[in-house]
């Protein structure tokens, strides 16, 4: 039994590492590599931490198993080494991890700043918000500015966020955007907390009652992505599902135009409408 327990504690880290190694082949890993430039940087940071952490994990477990193997004893009353510690060792294992941890945290700052600090946001995206997304139990309401609308300044955008324009274009749960371009949405909620989570783009931001939060993202492939609500919002939280469709600039313009037309359509043929247009 004396040798059984060290092996028992050895077995599990080995299984953990083999399991993690095989996981990508079974789909138990990122659904896709990040589909956005910023997401790729987040992935790189993840793998950097993974390497550091795995090294420490292997090292500590090897030390633990070695100690258990070497110093196990079945003789009662046998004396161990009488020592109360080592100042040098304490210094080494305080300063070394401190350096590593400080490096990790300083190394991350830049990516975070680019994701969240408004000062670093793309000017173009800030000046031309894609849409306002309003979360509500249990759907995503989307409001685009009228196709081709240009906001003159920030004040006009703020005004647009407070008071919808009559020509705004509305839809639900289906956010279209041009691919390969930084786009910005203004995120808000009507009732409780929600969270705007696009796993493939590595974007997540809570929607907070009373706040309007600008969120930018960039899809590098023309594709459809899941939009998941990631903050508990009530019994129907699980079904608060949306979709992001990233398409070419032309397709997006076409989509938005068609949406606007469908919304303006009152069922009367267009010809009649122009004829009687003066009357309004």
């Amino acid at each position: 039994m004396r040798r059984f327990w060290p092996l028992f504690f050895l077995a599990w880290p080995i299984i953990a590492i083999v399991w993690s190694w095989l996981a990508p082949y079974y789909g138990w890993w990122f659904h896709k590599p990040a589909q956005s430039p910023l997401g790729q940087e987040i992935d790189n940071l993840f793998y950097l931490i993974l390497i550091i952490v795995t090294t420490v994990f292997v090292g500590v477990n090897m030390a633990l198993v070695y100690v258990l193997w070497k110093f196990s004893s079945t003789t009662p009353g046998e004396k161990g080494t009488f020592t109360h510690g080592s100042h040098i060792l304490e210094m080494v294992w305080t300063v070394t991890p401190a350096g590593v941890l400080l490096f990790i945290s300083l190394y991350q700052m830049d990516v975070w700043a680019r994701f969240r600090m408004v000062q670093t946001f793309d000017k173009q995206a800030l000046a031309h918000p894609l849409a306002e997304v309003t979360a509500r139990q249990f759907e995503w309401r989307i409001r685009y500015p009228a196709p081709g609308r240009n906001f003159k300044n920030k004040a006009e955008i703020d005004e647009w966020l407070k008071h919808p324009s009559p020509d705004d274009v509305y839809t639900v749960n289906d956010l279209h955007c041009p691919a390969n371009k930084k786009v910005l949405i203004h995120l808000r909620t009507e009732d409780v907390l929600h969270s705007f989570f696009i796993p493939d783009l590595r974007v997540k931001q809570d929607a907070v009652p009373g706040l309007v939060i600008p969120v930018w993202f960039e899809a590098s492939k023309r594709n459809q992505y899941d939009l998941i609500c990631a903050e508990l919002c009530g019994w129907g939280h699980y079904k608060m599902k949306g979709r992001i469709s990233a398409e070419s600039e032309a397709d997006f313009a076409k989509y938005l135009h068609a949406l606007a037309q469908r919304q303006a359509d009152d069922g009367v043929p267009a010809k009649v409408e122009t004829k009687e247009g003066e009357g309004h």
Partner: peptide
């Protein structure tokens, strides 16, 4: 981390009873 290393240090050179 310091605590973990000290626990390993405690086991090191001991007479471990499972």
């Amino acid at each position: 981390a310091v605590k973990t290393f000290n626990w390993l240090g405690t086991l090191w050179g001991g007479r471990i009873q499972f």
